[in-house]
Design a protein around this nucleic acid. Structure first.
Lengths: 379, 379
DNA sequence: TTGTAGGCGTTATCAA
DNA sequence: TTGATAACGCCTACAA
């Protein structure tokens, strides 16, 4: 009965109504842009004045309870510290902001499990649902993520960014597909390979991303297809354990050691990365920029100069790549735009806008910089 | 009366109560860790089983309405795309997560105004307050931000990170101070200057941050004090318009042109950045890393090699600085820890924990890399 | 054009 | 230890 320790005080529409001698529904109407026109002009002005005077502020928690709409969406990222995500997040927020929505953010790691065996991303999604959020933008999807199915089955609205999950089961999969906004990874790899081939490279290796991620999978396929189109095959392929500098360094080192095929390195020429003290390849395409930076480290340690001995291409064109040593040639994907489109898609979904395409595929371009150059010695 | 379009469906505690033939208050108690002990053990088990079986999920919007606590805090950043902020944000989130809180994020730009004359950060804070959030972590504060006073006056809980606002008015200011977690900027500058002096540099310039930001102000003071301690004075000081690569490039260019004193460049030697085709300084300390990168660009364009002709020190030690060309020596501040402490402080504030120190000052260290070296030619 | 009544899902207080 | 009742602030239907 008593209402003691309310954290948020402030006046309510009821206070305004009393102040003006009208009913709170009238105030409610006056404050809702959609129904403002139902209120007579003079009254409307008085209500607004009173609201301002009393310092009224809407309480969305109350509105959410009443309408079921919290004007909040959940954003699941592996790690905001990875430079590809901030531009995406900006894109998401810029769209949400225009529509009066907020993003609830969670960094959930690379899909790894919590003590209880529940993926961190799933745990975060559960908590967000309780908040509640009206939908999710997810950049952590793995191709085999089962919890996504459960989330979807609960009726949650979901849009994937930069990742898809339906590659694994193939087009015949029974799972209802999820809307996704992605970059054309195969095209990206074609740009990278074509660039190296045009520079005269014939022995080209690949630092692949984790096969469980759609980007790792698709980019590897794209790499092999692009090489095949030139009548070439991979000089070496090593799959990296994760998308990080360390993983890239280790993977390239294993290539040089000749030991290395990584966890999925059954690719052509794997284990043959080095012969007679020099790498057998003159070109290297990494599945993302952090892997490329790791490779640069390892190459430098091995005394291989870039681009003189080996040309290196990254993927994503994350910020500051132009200031690196050397500046890194990279496949530029539309990070900000991907975020924008994903948010737009989710809001459409929430608003029930029909006929949106399931998957938006954005075309990448190539940002050519100092880490690639003409092949020196053909072998 | 009718309840048509509820977005969030799912069972409620009422459904569980009916299912079990108990009252919803009992279910509510059983589900609250704080009051669980008030429920008899056997019943407790049945309630939990039923909740699991029916797939119940708490509705925080409803709880927030009842308790006034949304378990949500607002985080105001200038721009998540600036690499210093992701580590801070991770620190914030990691702490919030443990306590069941979520962060509502807004990128509000560098304190610039919206069309209506309202700072973007203020507008975002207003919207967040309506959400409602239980408090704010603010990294956008300018030293003269008046809206912060208003926000504080409304009773909002606020913790500042990396910035303070009370430098401007001085210790005699009437405004109630705000809790803040910052790095020791003066100490940071001393580390930078001492390092250069130890390398033999005697002519040292400063690329200052905007004087309206506490970091810009304090670091400039720290720079001058550190020089004075060695009996030196600044070779040149130019204040940059913002903390960005472009601004740093432009400011250094103006130094070289001898035109440049920036908006606040009344410092000793300003306008004397260059003499006889070479810069008059052999050492440069930038107020942050992006400014340093801009300076590197401009120096390279001018044909000044780093560190042979000029040694450059940045500030913040943002990620990837070690991979730059050249690797940039920088004052390492505890970005992640600042975020953690700020979040912890805010939660303490919310919980009413007494006796927390108003300001936490973290000590920086120096990360020495390739952009600094012994002075070559003394002049 | 405005008022009335009821409910959204939860928690708080009091009574039993 | 459990139940009953009344809020929290807002929105929706319907009546006036």
């Amino acid at each position: 009965m008593a209402r003691p320790p309310a954290v948020r005080s402030g006046p309510t529409i009821n206070d305004i109504a009393r102040h003006l001698g009208v009913h709170k529904s009238t105030v409610s109407r006056a404050m809702d842009p959609e129904r403002r026109h139902l209120v007579a002009e003079p009254l409307l002005g008085r209500v607004e004045a009173a609201a301002r005077e009393l310092g009224w502020r809407p309480n969305r928690a109350a509105a959410a309870l009443s309408t079921g709409r919290s004007r909040t969406v959940g954003v699941l990222l592996p790690d905001i510290t990875n430079p590809v995500f901030p531009p995406m997040l900006r894109g998401i927020e810029d769209v949400l902001d225009v529509h009066g929505y907020f993003a609830l953010l969670a960094n959930t790691g690379q899909g790894r499990d919590r003590p209880g065996g529940v993926p961190a991303a799933q745990a975060a999604a559960e908590r967000m649902l309780a908040q509640p959020v009206e939908g999710f933008i997810i950049a952590t999807a793995q191709r085999d993520d089962a919890w996504l199915d459960a989330l979807q089955a609960e009726g949650a609205r979901i849009v994937l960014v930069n990742r898809t999950r339906d590659d694994l089961a193939g087009p015949a999969s029974q799972r209802p597909p999820l809307p996704a906004v992605v970059s054309d990874d195969r095209l990206g790899m074609r740009l990278a390979v074509d660039h190296l081939v045009a520079l005269g490279h014939r022995h080209i290796a690949h630092l692949a991303g984790p096969a469980l991620l759609s980007t790792g999978h698709a980019r590897r396929q794209g790499f092999e297809q692009a090489l095949a189109a030139h009548g070439l095959s991979a000089a070496a392929i090593v799959e990296c354990a994760s998308y990080g500098i360390e993983a890239g360094d280790a993977a390239l080192q294993s290539m040089l050691d000749g030991s290395g095929s990584g966890s999925g390195g059954e690719g052509a020429g794997a284990g043959a990365g080095r012969a007679g003290g020099r790498p057998t390849f003159t070109g290297l395409v990494a599945a993302n920029d952090l892997l490329a930076l790791g490779a640069l480290q390892a190459l430098q340690r091995a005394g291989c100069s870039v681009p003189q001995a080996v040309s290196v291409v990254g993927h994503n064109d994350m910020p500051l790549l132009a200031q690196m040593s050397p500046p890194v040639t990279s496949v530029r994907i539309q990070l900000y735009e991907m975020g924008r489109l994903a948010a737009q898609r989710l809001l459409d979904e929430i608003a029930g806008v029909p006929g949106a395409p399931l998957t938006r595929v954005l075309a990448p371009t190539l940002a050519v910089r100092g880490s690639t150059g003409p092949v020196r010695d053909d072998r």
